[in-house]
């Protein structure tokens, strides 16, 4: 049994969680239809380290899991706010 360290509930059985897929940015409301099709259907589906949305079902708590899809290792978990702040910081450094 795999254990996932939920930022809210602590270590819990993996069966208590659902994976909702990779973290991707939503297109603007008035973005072209292709951008929306890409957002809705297409997947990066990377073999390697990915950031994903997961939910602890019993408590309906959403958070971010950093996971290696080649080895099944869970590298880190964090609340969405921390992740978004981290992303902003990285973007700032890149000047994007």
């Amino acid at each position: 049994m795999k254990i996932i360290n939920c930022p809210l509930n602590g270590p819990r059985n993996a069966q208590e969680f659902v994976c909702a897929g990779e973290v991707v940015e939503e297109p603007a409301q008035d973005a072209a239809i292709d951008a929306w099709a890409d957002y809705v259907f297409l997947e990066n589906n990377l073999k390697g380290v990915v950031h994903e949305w997961w939910c602890h079902v019993a408590s309906s708590y959403w958070f971010i899991v950093t996971r290696d899809t080649a080895t099944e290792e869970i590298i880190a978990t964090c609340p969405p706010a921390d992740f978004l702040a981290m992303q902003k910081e990285t973007k700032g450094v890149d000047g994007a």
Binding site: G21, D38, F41, L42, E43, N44, N45, L46, K47, T69
Partner: peptide, 18 residues
Amino acid sequence: GMSSEVARMAGIKLPIRS
């Protein structure tokens, strides 16, 4: 099984989860 990874080399993004 490896469709997304091989297609990525060709610059194609697929509607697939492995």
